[in-house]
Amino acid sequence: MKTAVVVFPGSNCDRDLAVALEEVTGKKPEMVWHGDTALPDGVGLIAVPGGFSYGDYLRSGAMAARSPIMRAVADKAGAGVPVLGVCNGFQILTEAGLLPGALMRNAGLDFVCRDVALTVDTAQTAFTRRYAAGETIKVPVAHHDGNYVADQETLDRLEGEGRVAFRYAEEVNGSARRIAGILNDAGNVLGMMPHPERRIEAAHGGTEGRRLFEGLLDLVA
C-alpha cells in the first residue's frame, strides 16, 4: 500500500507515523509538504500527524487546515481514500471541516501526557476492524487541546451512526461523552487524540496501536 504523511511546519509526530507505516506496510511513506498541492497517485492512506503546526497560532490546527495541501487531502477524502488524523492531525481535520465538532483546551487546563485506557466503541470501521467492540486498549496521549466539543445533535448523530471509534475509559480532558476519536459520515476519515503510532512495538510498552494500521492494510492492500 502506498501511504503519505503530510508534514506541516511544527509537526513533530510525522516521523513516528512514518516509522509505523513503514513497519506495517513494508514501504516508506511519501512525506508531503504543507505547501505542496498534490498527493501521490494511488495513495491508499493519508496520515495527518501530531505536533504544533504553525505554533498553534490562532487555534490549534487552524492555519494548517487552510494550507495548500489540505485541498488535495479533502479531494482524496471525498474520493474515499482513508485519512487518519492523530492529535494535531485530528484538530486539523475538524478545522478543515472534514470532521464535525472542535477540540478545545483540556478541561483541567493541563497538558496531559500519559498512557490512557481507551474503549473501542465499534469494530465496524476500516480503522478498528482488527479490534473487538468494547475492547480496552492502552494508548498514549500528549495534548493540551483534546477536549472534544460538538452540539448535542451532532453528538447524538455520531453515536447513532456508529461514528465514535474510541472513547476514553477514564477522565482525561473533559471531552463530550468521553469521545477520543470520531469518523466522518462516509467512514473513511478518522480523527483521534491518542497516538496509535506510539504503540507499534513491544519496546513501546505495547502494540495496541499496530492493529489500527494492520486493519487498514488488509483493506486496501
Binding site: 490562532l58 487555534r59 487552524a62 487552510r66 475538524t94 478545522e95 464535525p100 465538532g101 472542535a102 478545545m104 466539543v149 460538538a150
Partner: peptide, 9 residues
C-alpha cells in the same frame, strides 16, 4: 467565517 473564527464554537 473562513479563518478568524471557528463558528462551531
Amino acid at each position: 467565517r473562513q479563518l478568524l473564527a471557528n463558528t462551531v464554537i
